[in-house]
Design a protein around this nucleic acid. Sequence first.
DNA 1: TTAGCATATTAGTATTCGCTCATTTCCGTA
DNA 2: TACGGAAATGAGCGAATACTAATATGCTAA
Lengths: 121, 121
Amino acid sequence: MPDSLRQFKTEIFQALANPTRIAILDELREGELTVSDIVRRLEVEQSNLSQHLAVMRARQIVLARKSGSQVFYSVRDPLIFQILDLMRRYFQNQVSESIILLEESEHRSKIKGRRVASRRS
Amino acid sequence: MPDSLRQFKTEIFQALANPTRIAILDELREGELTVSDIVRRLEVEQSNLSQHLAVMRARQIVLARKSGSQVFYSVRDPLIFQILDLMRRYFQNQVSESIILLEESEHRSKIKGRRVASRRS
DNA sequence: TTAGCATATTAGTATTCGCTCATTTCCGTA
DNA sequence: TACGGAAATGAGCGAATACTAATATGCTAA
């Protein structure tokens, strides 16, 4: 595994490691939007949004198309959405595993409870 | 898309956004390893490695199993590797797209070169 | 019980990040 | 040309990160 690949992965993960940026990408799932569209939808400060977009532009995650005084943004490669979706699956796995662990420990404490009860009688 | 999911994604991406941590996960693809195994393979400072492992332990990306005076680490959910692999595909996409763009621009500059040449003649 | 590995934790520091506020640049139009 | 809206950029600041060096904890074996 070459070092350049790890460096690349690091930079993309880093660009994705922010809730606002993830929200931006989610908004762009259906297609391109202008900056002010996104401002309206996310209720975030314009300059803040612009900085987040700059981060993703720098990593080429997002493309900017200028039209008049507006700029339309879109994601360059929909594979990004697959990554986000995989992360959702990962989340679901963790949640269901946690539930299983929880149920198991509840089960054990019920058994323990019965043991204590019978000991008392 | 609930906020908690975005928060979760952010935290995992953040944990993955470091070349040493990606290297650690790559080492763990074949199965569990002790801390000193990883130190040897990655040639990284032991305390530094321990901190990286702590980061991934905190996010439950990695599990620690204690055996005597050693600690074996393993990845909790192999879905992590799928995410890493998707990122590799993403990298390859970008690279090949860049090559295409490069070839196109070379093509154009050859045409331009011919135009200039013909203009000069 | 002590010596010596294996691992974790802490302190200190330089760097990066994310935000707000202010300003700038660029474009369309009166 | 001047004005107003859209977007980008820059300064400043507190919080988080990554690293090194030093120290602590915990286990094993003499």
